[in-house]
Design a protein around this nucleic acid. Structure first.
Lengths: 201, 201, 201, 201
DNA sequence: TATGAATGAGGATTCATTCAT
DNA sequence: CATGAATGAATCCTCATTCAT
C-alpha cells in the first residue's frame, strides 16, 4: 500500500514529465503551456507545481533526464563491445533505437533550439553536447591507440564532425522514413567515416 | 525625389528586417518583441505592420532573405572554381565568411530552432536545409563523375553527412575562438571528408 | 487519558492560533498562508480545517482572542486600584506589558489594518476599538465624578483622544527603542493628558 | 489639439489613479485588482501598465500623491497664520476639509494598513507619518519659544500625541457623522490639547 | 505614410479548500 | 482525528495587433 502511494505519486510526476516531453517536442518551449501539460498528464494545473518549482525547472529536468538516459545507455552499450570500430557501429545502432523510443525529442537535443530557450538552457544544452562529443572523442582516441584510426586528425575535431554527421542523419531519419533502409544507411555512413569521400587510390 | 521616397521606404523596411535579424539571433523567436524591433529600427511600432502582416511574416521574410542570400552567395562562389575538390574547399571558406558576418544567425539556420518556432517555420527551415544539401549533393555528384569521389556512397547521404559535419564545426567555432586556427581546422576537416578516419592502408 | 486527548486537541488548536498570530503580526492577513501557519504549528494543512471553517474564521478568532484577553487584563488591573488618576497610570503600564508580550500585533489592533482585512474584520476591529474607548470613557467619567477631571470635555471625546494618543505612542515605541526611557515617556504623556500643552498660568 | 492629447493622456493616468485610490480605500491593497481598477477607470487592463510598471508602483504613487498633497496643503495653510495657537486651530480645520475631499483615504494614511501592505510600503508610510509629526513638532517648538506652550514636554512627544489624537478623531469622524458638531468637537479637542483633562486648580 | 496609445487574450503562478487514506 | 496530495479559481503581467490622428 505504501508502495502504491509512492507509485501513484511517482507515476504522477512521470506523467507530467512525459506529457511535457511530448508537447515540448511538438511545439518547443514557449508555445508549450503548463495548462496543456497538466491536461495531457491528466492532472490539475496546480499539481504541476507540486513537483516542479516552475516551468523552467520542469523543462530543465525533462531535458536533463532524457539526456542522462541517452548518455547512460550509450555508455552501457559501448562497454559491451571491444574495439573502436565496433563501438562506432554500436553507436550508430543506438541512435536508431533511441529515436524510435524518444521520437522527436532528439530534435530538441540535436537541433538545440538553443536560441528559443531561455539562456538557462543554453549551458545545459552545450554541456550535453560536450559530453556527447567527449564520448565519441574517447572512441576516436581508443581507435588511434589501436592503430585503426589515423592519428593526423585531432580526436576532438573528429568527434565533433562525427557528432554533426550523426545529427544530420538523425534529422534525415526523422523526416524521411529510412526504417527499412537502416542497414544500408548505416553501412554507407560508416564507410564515409572510415574512408572518406575521396576515391580509393 | 520620388526615388528618395522609395528609398526611404525601402530603407525603412530594410531597417526593420535588419533589426529583427539582430534581435532574433540574440534571443530567438518568442522572446523577440515587435516593440524592440521597431525601437532598434528607429521606427514606430505601427510602422512594422505597414510592411509586414504579422510578426510571423516578418520573421519568415527575414529568415528567407538570409537563407536566399547565403545560398546565392555560395552558388556564385562555387561557380568561380572548377572541380569538386576545389568547390569543397571554397565551401568551407564561405562558411567562415558568412559566420563572421551574420554571427549567431547561423544557429537559427543551422541548429534549426525548429521547435521554438511556430510550425509554419518548420517547412521553411527544412526547405532551406534541403536546398543546402542539394547544393552539396551537386558537388558530390560532380566529384563522382570526375572520378575524384568514391561512388559507393550515395551523393545525397554524403551531402547530408557533410552538411551535418559543417554545422557542428560551425557551432564549435561559435563557442570556441577558432579564428586563428581556422586554416588548420579546415585542413583537418577536409582530410576527414576525403579520407575518413580509417588508418591509411 | 481522556483529558490527555482533550489537552492534545486543545493544544493543537492553541498551537494553530499561536502560529497564526505570530505570522499575522509579521505579514498581515493576505500574505499569511494556511500552509505556513500549519507548518509553524507543527500540524498538517488539513488539520487547520478541523478547528476552523476557513482562513477568515481562524483569523477572526485569533484577533478576537487577543482583544478579549487584552481587554480582560486591562479591566482586572483597573479594578486593583482606586481613583481615576491611578487608573490612567495603570493603563499606561499595561500597554507596555502588552506590547512586550504581543509585539507588533498591537499594530494590527491599533493601526487597524482595517483596510487590508476583509470587510468582515472591520466591524470586529471597530467593535474592539469601541470597547477599548468605552473603558477609558469609564475612567474619565469616574474622574469627573471625583472632581479630578474637568467636566467641560465630553468623556467620550476625551477617551477617543487618549486612545489615539496611546496608539501613537505605542507605534512610536514599536519603531524606536523607548524601553529604557519608558518612565520618562509615561510621565510626560501623563502630564500632557492632565495639564495639556498650554503654558501654566 | 496638442494639449488635447496631453489632457486625454494625463486624464487617463489620473483616472487610473483615482480609481485605484477609491478601490484601495474600499478594500485595501491585496483585494484590489488591476482589472477592477482598469474597469472603473474606463480603460483596458493593459493600459494601466502603460502608466505604471506594476501594481506596487501604482499604489505607491497613489499614496505618495495623496500624502504629498495633504502635507503641502497643510504647510500652505499653516503659513497663512501667525502664532502656534492659531496654527493648531488651522490644523484642525484642514483635517476636516481634507477628509471631506479625500474621504476614506485618510484611513490608509491613518490606519496605516502598514502590515497588510508589502514591506515596501512600510517605509513610505513611516516616512509620511514622520514628516507629519515633524510639522506638528515645529508648531510645538514655536509655541514653546513664544511662551504659550509649556516647555516641560518634549516637542516630539507632544507632536506624536497630537498626531495620534487627531487620527483617532478622524477615524471617529469617518464612522460617525460629526459634520454638524464639527465646531464643538474642534473646540473640545483644542481645550484638551491646551489644558489637559486635569481639573483646573 | 507613420505613429504609439490602447487593448485584451493568454499564460505562469499562488493558495484556500477538499477529500481519500 | 490527522494528513497532505490534488485542484482550479483568481491574479498579475506581457505583447501582438489595431486604429485614430
Amino acid at each position: 500500500m505504501a508502495m502504491d502511494a509512492d507509485e501513484r505519486t511517482e507515476g504522477k510526476k512521470r506523467a507530467i514529465m512525459k506529457a511535457a516531453l511530448e508537447i515540448l517536442t511538438e511545439k518547443g518551449y514557449h508555445p508549450t503551456t503548463i495548462e496543456e501539460i497538466a491536461e495531457r498528464a491528466g492532472v490539475g494545473k496546480g499539481t504541476v507545481y507540486l513537483y516542479f518549482k516552475s516551468k523552467l525547472e520542469l523543462v530543465a529536468e525533462v531535458i536533463d533526464t532524457v539526456v542522462q538516459t541517452h548518455l547512460q545507455e550509450m555508455k552501457e552499450q559501448m562497454s559491451t563491445v571491444k574495439g573502436a570500430l565496433e563501438k562506432l557501429l554500436v553507436l550508430a545502432g543506438i541512435e536508431y533505437t533511441f529515436m524510435r523510443r524518444h521520437g522527436p525529442l532528439a530534435q530538441i537535443l540535436g537541433a538545440g533550439e538553443v536560441l528559443g530557450l531561455a539562456p538557462e538552457f543554453r549551458s545545459q544544452m552545450c554541456n550535453w553536447r560536450q559530453r556527447y562529443i567527449e564520448l565519441i572523442e574517447g572512441i576516436v582516441e581508443e581507435g588511434q591507440r589501436e592503430g585503426v584510426f589515423r592519428t593526423s586528425i585531432s580526436p576532438f575535431l573528429a568527434a565533433t564532425i562525427i557528432f554533426g554527421a550523426r545529427l544530420a542523419i538523425l534529422q534525415l531519419a526523422l523526416e524521411t522514413d529510412l526504417e527499412n533502409r537502416a542497414d544500408e544507411v548505416r553501412n554507407q555512413v560508416l564507410e564515409f567515416v572510415l574512408h572518406g569521400l575521396g576515391a580509393p587510390v
